[in-house]
Simulated assay, not measured.
Amino acid sequence: MVGGVTILTFVALLYVIEAVDVVLNHRLDQDGIRPLQTDGLWGILWAPLLHGGWPHLIANTVPALVLGFLMTLAGMSRFVIATAIIWVLGGLGTWLIGNIGAHCPYLGVTCTTNHIGASGLIFGWLAFLIVFGFFSRKVWEIVVGVVVLFVYGGVLLGVVPGTPGVSWQGHLCGAVAGVFAAYVVSGPERKARALRKTGGPAPFPA
């Protein structure tokens, strides 16, 4: 229940921000991730909240609702930690490699791209859900990962270059951050398995 409300609130916030952006003639979109520019680092905080128009936001809505809700099933604390890792590390990765493959129409002109949209976060959630069960070794989480892979696995093609105007760099960095987040938040289960292998006592929650 709390997870569903949290995700609905987050997506509703995206729509409110896009409405404000439209009123401001899309000036907010300039606050995305601008790779290798110092002031572009602020975009790491704002980019997942910004979209390049209603079609962009609508395309991200259903995946955000579905994958975001599934993320909360692992527990709200883990959802918050994993989302923070994906948000920051995925954004930082995009800031570092976001200009790779950018088209420069004139020689000698430095390419600068501007990355916005929740898709990097969504790719992070997707990757997290696919691998988390294999880290935690919980059957139901493995089942969730397999189902998510079956339903959304084709989306992972978005991590490779190909579609002009689509931030494959953001998708790739988000996915990598999602795998890392799954490893980090599965720490208690991994430690418990290690203790069982060495014959030590299983951790007892306080």
Rank of each mutant, 00 (worst) to 15 (best):
L14D: 15
F135N: 03
V109A: 15
G120F: 14
R190S: 03
V143M: 09
V143G: 08
Q169T: 15
Q37W: 07
H171D: 14
V23E: 09
V144F: 01
R34S: 08
G178S: 04
G133I: 04
H51F: 07
V16K: 10
T38Q: 13
G162P: 05
Y15W: 15
I7R: 11
T9I: 10
L67Q: 02
G108Y: 14
I142H: 08
G120V: 14
A12P: 12
G124A: 06
G52V: 08
G133L: 03
F132N: 11
A84K: 05
I130S: 01
M1H: 06
Y15M: 06
G174D: 05
V2H: 12
A118I: 11
V2F: 10
G133D: 05
A202P: 10
D39T: 13
V146N: 09
P205E: 10
T198D: 15
F204V: 14
V20N: 08
P161R: 06
F204W: 12
C111R: 07
L70A: 00
L172H: 11
L96W: 11
V2Y: 10
L67S: 00
G174R: 11
G133P: 06
I97D: 02
V22F: 09
R78P: 00
R190C: 12
A59L: 03
G32R: 04
G117M: 03
N114E: 13
